[in-house]
């Protein structure tokens, strides 16, 4: 039963919760990944790759803002969402919050690949969203995203050409793959100010079922995950990388669930790295009102 999201007022509490939960996970993924990507500026292996990743970061930030914009209609302010929210209220998957291994470009391109394939699939599932503003944004975002996948794929192919590069990719894959699976976990409804309770965690799957039932997204998370696996596993295997998934196993779903990390991000539990990153990314905002400049040394006498 598709809901009516033509008007933002008059939403039922079920509709509002589904909408907020969906948009928070979409916007937070993009916002946090953009923040991580910027760490590569002036550090990527070539000028071109530096610019490419900086550009991708700017794209993801723009996309985060497009999703947060829709939340503005239900009274949630973009600046508050980005800079004043408790870090525990973010609903991004842990894949996007993990720090890059120092100088490990394989980590950056593999992470981008795992994420961007997932993003394309979920955008496809938003094309016919029952929420007109969501549907309105999908074409623009997808047109910008296709370059991200091209960039990641071409780098993966280059890195996989020799043993050293492939070894780095394999390490990154072993480390990142469980976190990539969190992208397909149901999100605990954001309480936006209140602590999530165990009750909320149990509710996550039901709220995601509402997201689909109300037509906000037209595929389930299970369907998206299964599609994602059908794309990334053969591609990674074609590069002679070993993926920790046996798709012919008796119960592949249970195997995948067993791989999931303890903190999944979507459930409001995050790795320590997220809290450090959040502290850093909100620092300038918190210091907007400061009246004294930072000094790097004592003023010389006289």
């Amino acid at each position: 039963m598709a809901g009516s999201f033509e008007a933002s007022d008059g939403l039922s509490s079920r509709e509002r919760r589904a909408l907020e939960t969906l948009l928070t996970r979409l916007g937070d993924d993009e916002f946090v990944l953009a923040e991580r990507y910027t760490e590569w500026q002036v550090r990527a292996p070539s000028l071109e790759s530096d610019l490419a990743l900086a550009n991708n970061a700017q794209d993801e930030l723009g996309h985060a803002r497009l999703w947060y914009d829709v939340l503005a209609d239900v009274g949630l302010d973009e600046r508050a969402l980005a800079y004043e929210r408790d870090p525990a209220d973010f609903r991004h998957g842990t894949l996007v919050e993990l720090p890059f291994e120092t100088g490990d470009w394989a980590d950056a391109v593999l992470r981008s690949y795992l994420y961007d394939v997932a993003e394309d699939l979920r955008l496809e599932a938003l094309t016919a969203s029952s929420h007109p503003k969501i549907a309105d944004r999908v074409g623009k975002i997808r047109s910008e995203e296709k370059y991200h996948r091209e960039h990641a794929r071409s780098w993966l192919e280059r890195l996989a050409e020799d043993d050293d590069g492939r070894g780095r990719l394999q390490d990154a894959l072993d480390r990142l793959f469980p976190h990539a699976l969190t992208l397909f976990e149901p999100a605990v409804p954001p309480r936006l100010g209140a602590k999530a309770s165990e009750n909320d965690v149990a509710k996550a799957a039901a709220v995601d079922a509402d997201v689909v039932d109300l037509g906000l997204r037209t595929a389930t998370l299970e369907e998206l995950r299964s599609e994602w696996l059908s794309i990334v596993v053969p591609f990674l295997e074609s590069l002679d990388l070993a993926v920790a998934v046996d798709r012919d196993a008796e119960n592949p779903e249970a195997d995948l669930d067993a791989l999931l990390p303890d903190a999944r991000g979507r459930d409001g539990a995050h790795t320590e790295a997220w809290f450090d990153l959040h502290d850093e990314l909100t620092r300038t905002y918190r210091e907007l009102g400061r009246t004294e400049t930072t000094t790097i040394m004592e003023a010389p006498d006289g």
Partner: peptide
């Protein structure tokens, strides 16, 4: 929408509380 509305707290399960919110004035 800069600075016009803060993040709302509150219990999303509370229908009455939900109905009290003024959504219309923001957009």
């Amino acid at each position: 929408h800069d600075g016009t509305a803060g993040v709302e707290g509150g219990d999303l399960d509370d229908e009455a509380n939900d109905a009290d919110r003024d959504h219309g004035s923001v957009c």
